[in-house]
Nucleic acid binder design. Structure first.
Lengths: 352, 352
DNA sequence: CTCAGGCATTGGAGCGTTCCAAGAACCTTA
DNA sequence: TAAGGTTCTTGGAACGCTCCAATGCCTGAG
């Protein structure tokens, strides 16, 4: 295995293109061509140059490339701390997926984490030296935030993970179809024989939450089931959820679809308070497939976001945007997948 | 608010240092000095140049700086997928902290996520174009892995989050003192009146796991309490943990210190299997303060890793290493902090 | 008045790469 | 053999910045 054997002088310093050229007996430009436009060279020359490159363990200097080509092969990723201060467990996996997808396209991810305090980041902080990034991926773009406008104005290509729910839509995005997810959850529950299916969501006004509520509502209506008085709202907090879901349970719901795993867990608590067993007496479905979901008992049926796919789409959209800056915006919706666990299947459906 | 008003020609393109110089009536070098060595300029000139810089919204071109100074102000972060495929919930927060700390030092984090398949990453994959990074932070460096040697050989400064437990130690690292954590857990339990305190850990050979076991053992010994037959080992898996901790409980343990939150949860399950209530009948302490810990019922007392501090230390160590490459390695141990929740305080200590 | 010496500023070069246009080699065709 | 068209290769310049050495200016001493 000819692992880049650093030959020649011991005090080498980095190998430059010029050194390779000298050693291979060609001009620097030819070496550059060998790497970037191989079809310009005669096969014979190409082979020789390539061998020399390998022998010397040559790697192009990215800064020099970036300076010359005006492209850094870097994608910025702007993390925004969630308002609640909770780092979404989702972002970890997404970041992995994003990095992966970027890698495959020859790009690398550069982190722009906004300090927890600062609300927006247009305040001179991070984006200042932004022009050494080829594009930008934004996450947590639920509501129209200053960043989009800022980037658009400066002509920096960007793509969002997440729609903007309020304000005018700008730019491309990829998002998870929350409505489709809760819709599928309802279908699942109906197939199990449930009819009195409640929904536990976040307060009105959060785009993501409203979307998830919509899916539940439309599925219920499609099956001719009533929705009035079957939904409750609560902050994404255990105790608040426990309290909020109470009336639904007391009204005889046999299943609850929740807008998050935390809400679902709040539902567990409310059930136990009433001497009922989640999964056995009342089915519960969460959303996000957080690590906790699989650990609960009963394990929680939940909707998993296709983060790998979202990551790939973000990169694809971004590259496309960089290719043709003036093309009309493209938006992609991806389907979450229902992960069926014990919280909906412990027991045959009650017959209402 | 004079937000960088892009003045002058509409089809400007990026503002360069030369343009600023021309407009301010000084040489390019003087502008450079104004930014990098302000004390070289006469206050009057400095003021004038600075104003021009602001007016024109000038930002230095990082690639050009990097090319000239041979320093990219970039820190690579190598994520290694954990063997179990589970992304440690810890890494998310750590990455935030790291990015934060790097930012404050004028550096930015560049992600190097190894594809899930590849075992090591010395295989030409990521580190190839590594020389456009000033330094490297490695995580998941439990056992001596090829990356350290690889980096050391190439003279790339690096720092690890985590000791290397096997093999010869290379380089600087910052780590969390697991032993101190479990020691503190035992102290906490003893203060509550417990005496029969068991330990549930991972199989021997994992450095991190053995470290956590050591802390429990030394605290027990310090208090003259027996350790033989009081510990069990299991994979970091719910069912395995539940089974493994059984004998400890059956032998009359009134408290269990676990090497992870998942193991602790396994303990919950084992207790319920026996009709006992975690927290009330037997105290349980976990490790890591994963998001799940606060959600469990009873909520789990656990050891929180000081990830923000670790992130800061990693950056500090790395910068120091870059400053004086031949200095002796520096190692930093940070104390985890005990987060007391219901699983140890639901009920007064039993009197053995 | 000249000259040393400190301070503020400048010119020129070069970091490593790729673009551009021009050059050398090669093969066809007259 | 010379002219013409490819195909392959080359030299020079430029990207935007900072290093280095040298310049001009001013002050104070000889």
């Amino acid at each position: 295995m000819p692992r880049s054997t650093s030959t020649s002088s011991p005090k080498a310093g980095p190998v430059t293109l010029a050194m390779v050229a000298r050693r291979a007996g060609v001009s620097p430009q030819t070496v550059s061509n060998a790497l970037n436009s191989p079809d310009l060279l005669r096969p014979e020359t190409l082979e020789r140059v390539r061998r020399t490159v390998d022998e010397m363990g040559y790697r192009p200097h990215r800064a020099a490339q970036a300076l010359r080509t005006r492209s850094s092969k870097l994608i910025g990723y702007g993390i925004r701390p969630t308002p609640h201060g909770t780092t979404t467990p989702v972002m970890d996996r997404f970041l992995h997926a994003l990095s992966q997808a970027a890698d495959e396209a020859g790009y690398r991810i550069l982190l722009f984490a906004s300090p927890p305090g600062s609300a927006g980041l247009e305040g001179h902080e991070e984006l200042l030296d932004l022009h050494h990034v080829d594009g930008f991926v934004l996450s947590g773009t639920e509501r129209s935030d200053p960043r989009q406008g800022w980037l658009a104005k400066r002509g920096v290509p960007f793509v969002g993970f997440g729609r903007m729910w309020s304000g005018r839509q700008i730019g491309d995005w990829a998002d998870v179809d929350g409505a489709s997810g809760t819709d599928a959850a309802v279908e699942h529950l109906i197939a199990l024989g449930h009819r009195r299916i409640g929904f536990l969501g976040w307060p009105h006004g959060s785009g993501v939450g409203d979307d998830r509520a919509d899916g539940w509502r439309r599925a219920m209506r499609r099956h001719g089931l009533p929705v009035r008085g079957r939904s409750a709202r609560s902050a994404d907090d255990l105790d608040a959820a426990r309290a909020a879901v109470g009336p639904l349970l007391d009204a005889g719901a046999t299943a609850v679809v929740a807008a998050s795993d935390v809400l679902a867990l709040g539902c567990y608590h409310a059930l136990r308070e009433r001497g009922a067993r989640p999964g056995a007496d009342v089915a519960v479905v969460g959303f996000d497939d957080s690590p906790t979901a699989a650990l609960l008992s009963p394990s929680l049926t939940t909707l998993a976001q296709p983060l790998e796919a979202v990551g790939r789409e973000c990169v694809r959209l971004l590259l496309a945007r960089m290719g043709r800056p003036t093309a009309p915006p493209e938006r992609v919706l991806l389907e979450p997948s229902l992960v069926v666990r014990d919280s909906t299947t412990l027991v045959p459906a009650p017959d209402d």
